[in-house]
Design a protein around this nucleic acid. Sequence first.
DNA 1: CGTATACTCTACATCGTTGTAGAAGTACGG
DNA 2: CCGTACTTCTACAACGATGTAGAGTATACG
Lengths: 367, 367
Amino acid sequence: MPVRMQDVAQRAGVSVKTVSNVVNGYPHVRESTRRRVEEAIDELGYRMNVSARNLRTRRTGMITLNVPELSLPYFAELADSVIRAADERGWSVLIEQTGAERQRELEVLAGRRRHRGDGVLFSPLALGQDDLDQFDVDFPLVVLGERVFGARADHVTMNNVEAARAATAHLISTGRRRIAVVGAHAGEVIGSAALRLAGYERALADAGIPFDPALVGEAGLWHRATGAETMGRLLDSGIGIDAVFALNDAMALGALHALHERRIDLPGDIALIGFDDVDDVRYSVPTISSVDPGRDEIARTAVDLLVQRIGGTTEPFRRVVPDARVVGRQSTGDVRGDGEQVVAVMPGRVEDTEVSPLPVGWPRPVG
Amino acid sequence: MPVRMQDVAQRAGVSVKTVSNVVNGYPHVRESTRRRVEEAIDELGYRMNVSARNLRTRRTGMITLNVPELSLPYFAELADSVIRAADERGWSVLIEQTGAERQRELEVLAGRRRHRGDGVLFSPLALGQDDLDQFDVDFPLVVLGERVFGARADHVTMNNVEAARAATAHLISTGRRRIAVVGAHAGEVIGSAALRLAGYERALADAGIPFDPALVGEAGLWHRATGAETMGRLLDSGIGIDAVFALNDAMALGALHALHERRIDLPGDIALIGFDDVDDVRYSVPTISSVDPGRDEIARTAVDLLVQRIGGTTEPFRRVVPDARVVGRQSTGDVRGDGEQVVAVMPGRVEDTEVSPLPVGWPRPVG
DNA sequence: CGTATACTCTACATCGTTGTAGAAGTACGG
DNA sequence: CCGTACTTCTACAACGATGTAGAGTATACG
């Protein structure tokens, strides 16, 4: 027996619509009327039935964020930023985890996974460029990350190649020549692993250092555990290494662990840099240099783009790359104490993509 | 121009309700009819309007999780577990961050913060026992943590006192006598800080070690940064310390950082144990012993309780405490390599609380 | 073969809000 | 004092699904 607007209206001696107007802040309501309605609301303890409003307005005020898992610090921090950005704009965030499983990620796009909400922020990890067609969906969608390019959707991504190049260049600038990579994905053409590896190779080329495949360590999932394993394998293989570029921070933390196990001194014997600039790397021992891809800006931009798209904008799809920074810390030397120092900045950019923004009958509620 | 059940019904030559029946898996539908309806659904690309269903059924299939912030590893992992548990049971999770701000936490209970969804999982951090009355809400609520006891709601908490006692006892068992605490909250009577400190004191008493207030370090927010600061203060104060009990893992990681800065050997000079058993402590250098409070079980239990309450159960409110474990790692010695070892188990329990479960007119949709 | 029982499906009201159209009241300029 | 424009409010019809009640068939059973 919930209290309805009807009940409030009766009590206040006005029509239902007037109650609605008061609740929604419609300006043309006499002050005395407004007060009477508000009193009735308080007296009855009325609260809006959101489902009814959602039905009527065809809007839910919610967006869905699909990430692999919140246990990965990068995605936890991303989710934090997204929720903040959404909250500031009056939106709520529903979070679903795909576990980086291909099947679940496909379901996100097929609309099979129940996604309530007016739009979807999607950070795929299992899908790839071959699945491009699947991204042609009939609900507002913003894609995050670098698994797929050219989708008919807004896309917020990182400056991977340039940032990886700058990170590698930073290692080279400290005199390193034998730079191992932790986290490569064999055969990948796009995707974070491939792009960051490409940046690495470019930096080597810039410096005239030959590329040695033996220095490239594979790691499937980018977790702390795989980082530790991969680092261990590289070290135990006996090749000479004087620096490590871990393709994300989780693996950098794992790599650090493996290095420490073998009593290798950082940054004396081996320098280390990661990617993502998660909070952890500021408190590890030693602190780890990393690439700050502009997480807050990624979140804000993604939410803005999605909200605009939900609003029915007809602008062409955008690809947005926030500014990125290489942050030097103890693991690459030259920084006193807990300090950190921005050693490079890669400016971001915004591009319109060529695909037409408006498939037939679009946008429509996600349902 | 969205596709409605009406359109599907027309195409399939059946009534709207039959389409509804097919969609909802109602068993008494002729196979041929079902097929026709499904074909019509595919042909028209029909997707259910969730808002309409929600209105009619007075259920949204969503629960709201209110946590301080996902950037804190414990809450990120908790959210991960909650989403998993909810997903297995067919529920979606809306996440809101309170930032541990009192005002926002009060809004959660006042229903002012728009909480869509059928019920609320709430992990307060700013509210305390004085706010008990606020927890008497008219929507399904499950409280997490130890800020408030005795609320008219189901409550899932940790075995704080016993677990802290066991953690401290573990340090004592390795021969430590001067055990510092990182993260106390002066004047707090309940709350994680007070309870864990009580467990610490009890363990000292058990071993006949006098309690020395100088060993107790305050820290407001339980972040890595505050852990590092507090540890630093304790060390710089010059009092003798041979072990540290950090009241959560984030502070343990910060403390580790401070210890390393001062070139103090773990566990040689000082042993360290944390609380929460987040993933990080398995990859820090050295790995950190911790208390595993049973996060997955907390999440599963909380979701189960909430779903039951949403279902309108009239059972008395429950207080549930999952099993907890003390996990020994390198930071307290005696563990080879990356290994870990359960050194104590505190059995959980389930209690009915005395408060009556059914305020007038309850439960009702959150609205 | 008649009646009871199950199966399959339909018609209609209903969930609680907001958009639309327009009625009544008020203010103001000419 | 009237016409015009604004303000304030109301009545009613949606939004798109599901619950209820019951109508027709098919099947089972004595």
